[in-house]
Design a protein around this nucleic acid. Structure first.
Lengths: 367, 367
DNA sequence: TTAGTGTGTG
DNA sequence: CACACACTAA
């Protein structure tokens, strides 16, 4: 049987909001490690993969693997009956045909219980290859939302191009063309391996090989990410110009600076507007201090754009889907775009309890 | 003739908003005591009774009883022309076929006047028996709204069950069943007589003591106290609850006394009508602390759920109507549900100037 | 959270 | 044919 107690029903609600327009029915595959959902969107163009880790629950128990066939519309309705901060417990008996949801008000003076019918769904769960990518762009999720929404007004598709200059989103429409360039806030990091890493910011069990070893020591219990600590950021003080003109795009070697202090700029820059106005230089504060300091919600704004690339990539995608994907922004302040030429884009949102990943094949014939 | 001056047009507007979908035409029965409206809903399933007491008006005069046949849709339109805080005067000459409405801005710099046609309506005013009920649930009106709205997503009807455990709202639907249990916040009060008491909350005319006395004498525990109080009645002394435990063990039934305008909905408090010599607002100490504060909203639950019962009741009702009734929540932060088995439910909203009461017959065949 | 669109019911 | 309710999108 399954019994999963979630501290905040809001997490599930947001999850469902994020995917319900893409998928109507799906199996929640539950096992001792957590809950996974994988489904093609209704038109079989995109793939959605959701993961909720067992450790992310207040309590989690799943004796044996069980797929729960859920109609997401129904589940959404039932979840609407929960307040965001209700404690939500999911229960299903083995072979049950209903999913039981209990919402408990924080102060316990209200208990609501729902039973939702389950359905049998053919699980065409296809293994997702653990691809390595040529480029990863990490940016504030709100920024991504904004860009794809903006561009979707102009045209149907967007060309995403990652170069050492930064990442460019360009779209062509009937009446106008648009292009948004994001420069990496810090610098372009070069890495050898770029793979989806949901554990980037926080992890409990870093089972997967991390792309950088520093992370190991960095391991902090799951919490808010101020920046991607894992990214090796080298201490360059001169961040005036983001892209150093000196180097050509391809060197692979990591910066010698292995001491990863994630400084955040004095907290001045927050969600940056797409305008590539020159970012103010961040006076590096003492490395140690910056990390320890309490974060006033302003400070831990998702902050910057990080670009990691091994190779220049340029791909074209349907904006319609990207706009859809971007609805997950409420779950996580950051989003990662993983790309390789001629390979499906991976859009990943990692939140405390797990992740949502979207895969979308590029349009052919892009330049 | 009638001349009734209301301190805030908003009161009328909310009233109309609350009932206009239930009733399209109705007689406003005006007499020296105030204005009453009583009507069956359009499908003759529910009954709505509205009362506005003469004393609740800034000025009120009605020489002789007169029914004003009003099309509520028209009146709603006319009322939309008033701002919520306008002073609103209703005037009608004897035998008039129009109702005159004057809206005066608080600062008098704007006066609007409307004449609305009246119509003849067969007044099938039927006396409403002053029933005694087996149970009364007093709860935040916003909570009631939330529950019936939630459950109405799932099914057509709801079973309301009052027991010493609390009050349970349960609904069954195609894709899911739902059940919400509210535990009494304080304790279950046992009373001998449970009747609708609109005067519970303070009103202008009477001062508190008088109010209490009146109730005291009126109260005769003429009934079933067979259940032992002790069970759910852990008399925590009148801490939260206002009334002194004096009389005969049983609580005075004015739990809604706390006039704190704390509807969590949105702090939409408006300046209370200065009314005719507002009598001392009983500064009930109890939650006073919370009252003074700006908004701790979390700390002081705007109100608890109070359950009074002499007998277990279980009744099933159409959610459609309850949802409709619950629109009156804007008028009052609390609502009372009065129930006895096999008897129509009474849903009562008591506000400063009067009340709205809805009666709805239970569905047959409920368990 | 609010507004608009679409569907269903009367 | 109109009104109301529900759902979806912004």
């Amino acid at each position: 049987m399954l019994e999963a107690k979630l501290a905040e029903a809001g997490t599930l609600k947001k999850l469902l909001d994020a995917i319900k327009e893409l998928v109507t029915d799906a199996n929640f595959e539950c096992n001792e490690e957590g809950i996974n959902l994988q489904a093609m969107d209704n038109s079989h163009v995109a793939l959605v993969a959701v993961n909720l880790e067992a450790v992310g629950f207040k309590r989690y128990r799943c004796d044996r693997p069980m797929p729960l066939g859920v109609n997401l519309t129904s589940l959404t309705k039932v979840l609407k009956c929960a307040k965001d901060d209700d404690i939500c417990t999911l229960k299903a008996a083995d072979e049950a045909d209903v999913l039981n949801l209990v919402y408990e008000a924080k102060n316990s003076d209200r208990i609501a219980e729902y039973d939702m019918k389950l359905m049998d769904i053919d699980s065409d769960t296809l293994g997702i290859p653990d691809t390595e990518y040529d480029a990863r762009v990490t940016m504030p999720s709100a920024e991504f939302t904004r860009i794809v929404r903006d561009l979707s007004q102009l045209g149907e598709s967007v060309r995403i191009e990652v170069s050492k200059e930064g990442v460019r989103f360009a779209s062509e429409g009937e009446s106008a063309n648009g292009s948004v360039l994001l420069r990496q806030t810090e610098e372009v990091a070069k890495v050898g391996k770029i793979k989806a890493e949901s554990k980037d910011d926080d992890e409990e069990g870093a089972d997967d090989d991390e792309d950088d070893d520093e992370k190991a020591k960095e391991k902090k219990p799951k919490v808010k990410k101020e920046r991607d600590e894992d990214v090796e950021m080298d201490e360059d003080d001169d961040v005036e110009e983001v892209n150093k003109p000196g180097e050509d795009g391809e060197e692979e070697q990591d910066p010698e600076e292995d001491e990863d202090d994630d400084d955040e700029e004095g907290g001045k820059k927050r969600k940056k507007k797409s305008g590539p106005s020159k970012p103010s230089k961040k006076p590096r504060t003492s490395k140690a201090s910056s990390k320890s300091k309490g974060k006033g919600k302003e400070d831990d704004e998702p902050a910057g754009v990080t670009i990691e690339m091994n190779q220049h990539v340029s791909l074209t995608f349907s904006l319609k889907y990207l706009v859809n994907f971007s609805k997950s922004a409420s779950l996580c302040p950051k989003v990662q775009l993983m790309m390789s030429n001629d390979v499906p884009l991976l859009v990943a949102y990692d939140f405390g309890q797990g992740h949502i990943r979207y895969y979308l094949a590029p349009k052919i014939g892009d330049d």
